[in-house]
Design a protein around this nucleic acid. Structure first.
Lengths: 340, 340
DNA sequence: CTGAAAGCGCTAACAT
DNA sequence: ATGTTAGCGCTTTCAG
C-alpha cells in the first residue's frame, strides 16, 4: 500500500508538503508541486480514506436515506439516487446508501460515528421521526420532499401546488370544464407524504378561480383498480372531458381503458399527467405532462449540502418551478353537436 | 463527541477493555461487560468510523456499483440495491453507492483509498474493463451478472438459460407449437450483457428438443415499437399462439396490442414473461412468469462478499434456479376448428 | 515556501 | 481477565 510518506520520500519532500499539494491549502512552488504530482502518479497513490477522515474529521461522504418501501414510484427514487451520486462525485463526495429501515437510530449512528459529513433524506413524511434529530445534529441535512414544519431544515422539492395549478390552467385553456383527478394510492395519502395533497390543493384553488368542476379519486396502480375508478368517474360525472393523473403506475392502464371505452385521446378526452418525463414519453399516447424533475432535485440537494458544508448556504426551501410539456394527450374540448 | 476513552473512564476500565467489549475478540467478565455497556448506553457512544478503519484497516463498507444508464430495467436495479443495503446492515456493513461512471478508475480509487472492504458490481458486461482490475485486487468482489470469463471471480445471477428452457417447456406442455420471443431492446444485445443471449439459447435449445418453432425479435419498450414488432410477427408467423417476453417495458404494450388485435389472453394467445414479480402481478392480465429474483440476488451477493471477508468462501458462480409462477396469461393452445 | 511533530480515536500486539 | 502502548496514515499547527 502506497502512503503519503512514500510519496514524500519519492519526491524528496516532507509529508506535509505532499498533503498541501493535495489540499491546496497553502502555496507550493510550481517545481515541487510538479515533482510531487509526478510521484503520486508514478506510485499510484490514493489517500487513505480512514486516516484522512480521522485527521480532518471529514469523511467526504454524504449519506443518502432512501425509503425502504420498494412499492412506490421506484423509478424516480432510483433516478434521484443516481443524480445524487453523480453530482456528489463532482464535488469530491461519495454517497452512502441507507434504507432508513432503522429510523431515527440510523441518523444517530451516522452522526455519532462521523461516517458521513451530511445527510440527504428522500420521501420524508410530514411528521417524520427523524426531523427533530436532524435539527439538533451538528451535520447538515437536506430533505427531498417537504415536511409539515421546515424550520431549521433545508428542503428541495417540486412545487406540486404550482404543478396542480398548471394542469388546471392548461385544461381550462383548452376549454375543459369538468375534470377528474386520478391520484396516488390511498396508502400514499395515509402516509402523509404531503406532495399528493399539495398537488390537489393547487388543482382545487386554480380550478375554483377558473370555474372548473373537479372530482378527485385516489387509486391503486393496478389495472383493475384504475378500471373501477374510471368507471365510477364516468358514472358520477358523465360530462368529464379531461383527466389529471398523478400516479405513475396508473397512466398506462388509464390510456388502455379509455381506448376500451371508445374514447379517443385527445379528441374525446384529454389526459394530463404529473410524472417523470420517461413515463410520459413511453406511454401509448405520449402524455402532455408536468415532469417530476428527479435529476434536478438530486442535483439541488447535493449542491445545498455542499454549500452548507463549505460554510456558505443556509436553511432554505427550494421549490422547483414546474413545467408543462405539451405532447399528444391533451386537446381542445370536443364541443357537443360539433362532430368536427 | 464521545470517544472510547470517555467510555473507559466512565466505566473505570482501560480503553482496550472497551474495545474488546465491542469486538468480542477476547473474553470479558460479565460484570465489566455490563458496566461498559451501561456507560456506552449512557454516554451515547458510537465508535468513530475513520479511526476504526485506520486502526483495523477495515471500513465495514461494501461498495456497490450500479449502472449509470438509468434507462434499463431500473426497478430491478433499485430492488437489488435495496436488498444489498439491508442485507449488508445485517452483517454490520454499510453500502457505498457508486455509479461506475468513472469506470476502472473508480475501482482503483476504492481499492487505493481503502474506502470499502469489498465491491459488488451490477450489470457487468461480458468483457468489462473492470474485471482485470478486480481479479488483481486485494479486496473481494462479487458480480451480479455473468461475464464471459468468470475465472477468479464470484458471480450471482439468475440461470437465464434455464429460465428460457422453463418457458419453452411450459408452453409446449400447453400444446403450443409456434412461439414468438419479444426480447430486450437492441441496445441491450449490443452491450453484450449476456443475460438476454443466455435466455435465448436456453429457449432455443429446449424448443429444438420439444419441436417448437421459435421466432425472436429484439424490441424497444415503447408502444410504437412493440406494435410494429407484434404486427411483423403475426405477418411472418400467422400460426403464432404464444409469446415469451423478456422486456419489462414491453409487457403492458403487448397486452394492450393483443387486445386491440382481438386476441384474447390466454384463450387465443398465451403470454409468458421473464420479469420481476411486481411487474407480472400488476399487468392488465396477471402474467404467468419467471421471476427475476432481485432480492435474492442482492442477498446472495452480500452473503458471498461477507463470507470472503471472513476468510471463508471462495470464488463461486451461483446461478439461481428459475421458478415459473402460473398466473392468468398462459393457457392451452386453441385448437383450430374447436370453438370450445 | 517548506519541515517537524503533535495528535485524531481506535485496534491489537505485548504484558501481566 | 484486564491494562499498557505502539502504531494506523493523514492533517495541521508551530517553526523557520
Amino acid at each position: 500500500m502506497v502512503t503519503l510518506a512514500d510519496v514524500a520520500q519519492h519526491a524528496g519532500v516532507s509529508a506535509s508538503t505532499v498533503s498541501y499539494v493535495l489540499s491546496g491549502k497553502r502555496s507550493i512552488s510550481a517545481t515541487t508541486r510538479e515533482r510531487v504530482e509526478r510521484s503520486i502518479e508514478q506510485l499510484g497513490y490514493h489517500p487513505n480514506a480512514g486516516a484522512r477522515a480521522l485527521a480532518s474529521s471529514r469523511s467526504n461522504i454524504i449519506a443518502l436515506m432512501v425509503p425502504l418501501r420498494t412499492d412506490m414510484y421506484v423509478p424516480v427514487m432510483m433516478e434521484i439516487a443516481i443524480a445524487v451520486a453523480t453530482t456528489a462525485r463532482t464535488f469530491g463526495y461519495d454517497v452512502l446508501l441507507l434504507t432508513g429501515e432503522e429510523g431515527p437510530s440510523d441518523v444517530r449512528r451516522i452522526e455519532g460515528s462521523a461516517l458521513a459529513d451530511a445527510m440527504i433524506l428522500m420521501d420524508v413524511e410530514l411528521h417524520d421521526d427523524r426531523l427533530p434529530l436532524l435539527r439538533e445534529a451538528r451535520r447538515p441535512a437536506v430533505l427531498i420532499g417537504l415536511p409539515a414544519d421546515t424550520t431549521g431544515l433545508s428542503c428541495v422539492d417540486l412545487d406540486f401546488a404550482a404543478a396542480g395549478a398548471l394542469c388546471a390552467e392548461h385544461l381550462a385553456g383548452l376549454g375543459h370544464r369538468e375534470i377528474a383527478v386520478i391520484g396516488e394510492a390511498p396508502g400514499v395519502y395515509e402516509r402523509l407524504t404531503g406532495f399528493a395533497e399539495r398537488t390537489l390543493s393547487g388543482l382545487r384553488e386554480r380550478s375554483g378561480e377558473l370555474g372548473l368542476r373537479l372530482l378527485h379519486r385516489p387509486c391503486e396502480g393496478s389495472y383493475a383498480a384504475v378500471s373501477a375508478t374510471v368507471g365510477r368517474i364516468f358514472d358520477e360525472r358523465p360530462g368529464t372531458t379531461a383527466f389529471v393523473v398523478q400516479n405513475e403506475a396508473a397512466t398506462d392502464p388509464l390510456l388502455a381503458l379509455l381506448r376500451q371505452h371508445r374514447r379517443a385521446v385527445p379528441e374525446d378526452v384529454s389526459v394530463v399527467a404529473i410524472c417523470p418525463d420517461q413515463v410520459a414519453v413511453h406511454a401509448s399516447v405520449p402524455l402532455t405532462s408536468v415532469a417530476v424533475p428527479a435529476q434536478e432535485m438530486g442535483r439541488h440537494a447535493v449542491e445545498q449540502v455542499v454549500a452548507k458544508l463549505a460554510g456558505r448556504g443556509t436553511d432554505e426551501v427550494v421549490l422547483i418551478k414546474p413545467e408543462l410539456t405539451v405532447r399528444e394527450s391533451a386537446g381542445p374540448r370536443a364541443v357537443p353537436g360539433d362532430p368536427l
